[in-house]
Design a protein around this nucleic acid. Structure first.
Lengths: 196, 196, 196, 196
DNA sequence: TTCTAAGCGAGACGGTACGTCCAGTCTTAAA
DNA sequence: TTTAAGACTGGACGTACCGTCTCGCTTAGAA
């Protein structure tokens, strides 16, 4: 059986250096041309240290991207009482984030990796997607109680209706990503969700 | 200046062999572990023959996947006069396709490549996405004329509302892809699109 | 200045374990594939303990081999009064030693190391070769006094004439190493050494 | 079964560059610190090109050293009619060669490798040692016919008596290697070989 | 019909990166 | 303070592919 490393002896300095190097290099050269060797060199770390703590290039990038959004964990969506206004706020913010190459490149890399690696995808859902989705559904539930959304709406499907078009447009670059687009999307999707 | 190969002398036999090998190997080992060398070996073809006619691994897979859907080109969506029924038919068919690993693997590979390569993405939109979208929009327009969809609806956005949730669920494996799901999605999205 | 370890606090148990492990591993995997790490693991010893007390892999093997021949130190050659018979006895014994893989492998390893490392070679001559040669020369001197060897013979050269052919044959595996060979060699070399 | 490379397509330029680099590096850094990677870099050659044509570092050095002595193949020893004078000529030349670091380092490396690798040792005997020994024995035979060496002398043993002391002294650096030493060795060994 | 120029299968080439092993140093906890 | 344990940086290993570059060998038209 393979020997397991002892996490209590892990060098925090090395961990940080690797994640920082990964983030920088993804932005600089793109995910496809990213190499473990380059990360190690940039981080001033032996390759073995990377292989000891991460099982693949994808796993490193995954962790690197997670540290970007650390602190967002306990995030709650705005709740002004107006679901439409609140959703527009959130969607416009998302659009803005995607416009920043410093965020865009690593997140695109993460998505590429998730597409090909179901195990990583599951981890992503567990650590990132599910908590965020839960927060979003909490806001929708609040809107249901306020009578702004149909009481019998399937909130998972509602979430997809609201967010999937934006995600797809970004991922496939199939159209402009603007604040106007965010607004139009929210307005249209809400039509489907309002009480009869 | 670089010499251009003469397409009239191209070996059709080699072309077919390469595309078939690419399709098989994508299914067998996945896109990430796919190598030009392996494709050449499997196809019984020199590496140079691949490099002569395709500019990258992505381009080969791109072509390989296109040949899968060849013949769908002039495809028109069913038009029974009932937009809801017709959309459900189409969406259920899409769900079924994604369940077949022989289709799923190459198409996923294609999406991975498109994510990282804007040039390939543009080609994909031009050759595949746009024609298909145009056919779908034609059906929606017909529904508008029949008064089943609001006359002022933005058809591009409508398309996204209908298809993006399905696409996202498949790509991220974020939920089950069933006929019921297709139906529910169509019903919900249409609520947003019907005349006021 | 580098800190010197205090030999009085050295663990004899660790020292023995390291030397034993080195001897075993040289025999099992050969000198070239021998690693400090493997010696430490086999000996149940930290790597640092080895680096603290030996300056190189060669030095460990050197010590390991020395312990093999410990006790031979004050060795005197047999002196029956018949130089030819006595030399044959000694040479046949040497031949027999070389046939035992438990001796052969470490000694070959030692020779390999000595070839490349003049410092180790000097240490070897001082600790091992010179005392042994002195004992041999003592026996030759006794033969000179008995008139069996020319009074003006150069004993260093005489030693080489007697032993180098055997050594070379073993080292290069350039011919069979048998008791007969030992006898023939002694007889021939003695022809050169007898009084005129 | 492993694929065999086709020697007819081998690049002579690469072969020469690798051997030259190996020779240079052995002299510069020594055999122990010699790395395939460094040879490849110095030769401006891919590592695979080395691994394709040689099975180990030792094999490269072996070939590199062989090219040093290429042309000596059909070498015949001098035959002036005086075996003592001729042997002294040859032995003094050998001593001189060993004094040249450009020869000494690679040849020492070769010997180190041969010690550890019986397969290489066999190849060495076949390609180098045996032909040379045959030439030497031819000269000894000629001396036998001239009555300068006993008719019943074992020429293999005679060769060892003459050359092994020199070889051992060089290999173990156990004494000075001078023209005087060569002369003394020849004189002493010949005493054992002359007719009774 | 022969010539010639292209594409072809094959595979060697200079390289980059892989994932592994080990060297030699450093840190921790136990004795 | 020494020790066993083992994480660390770093360098080399031997392998897999990259994309380029010859090789001979078909296989067309053009001469």
């Amino acid at each position: 059986m393979a020997k397991q490393p002892d996490p209590s002896r892990r060098s925090e300095r090395s961990r940080q250096a690797v994640l920082a190097a990964a983030r920088e290099l993804v932005t600089e050269v793109g995910y496809a041309k990213l190499s473990i060797e380059a990360i190690a060199a940039r981080a001033g770390v032996g390759k073995q240290t990377i292989y000891r703590w991460w099982r693949s290039k994808g796993a490193v990038v995954f962790d690197a991207v997670l540290t970007l959004s650390e602190g967002d964990d306990g995030m709650a969506l705005p709740d002004t009482g107006d679901i439409e206004a609140d959703l527009k706020t959130v969607m416009r913010a998302t659009v803005a984030e995607f416009a920043d190459p410093g965020f865009e490149a690593p997140i695109r890399a993460l998505n590429t990796e998730i597409l090909q690696d179901p195990e990583l995808a599951a981890l992503y859902r567990e650590k990132v997607a599910d908590p965020v989705d839960e927060a979003k559904k909490a806001r929708l539930r609040s809107a249901q109680q306020a009578g702004q959304i149909a009481a019998d709406a399937d909130l998972d499907l509602a979430l997809e209706l609201l967010y999937a078009p934006l995600y797809q447009r970004w991922l496939l670059r199939s159209g402009p990503l603007t604040a106007d687009y965010a607004d139009a999307l929210v307005e249209l999707a809400l039509k489907a969700l309002r009480p009869a």
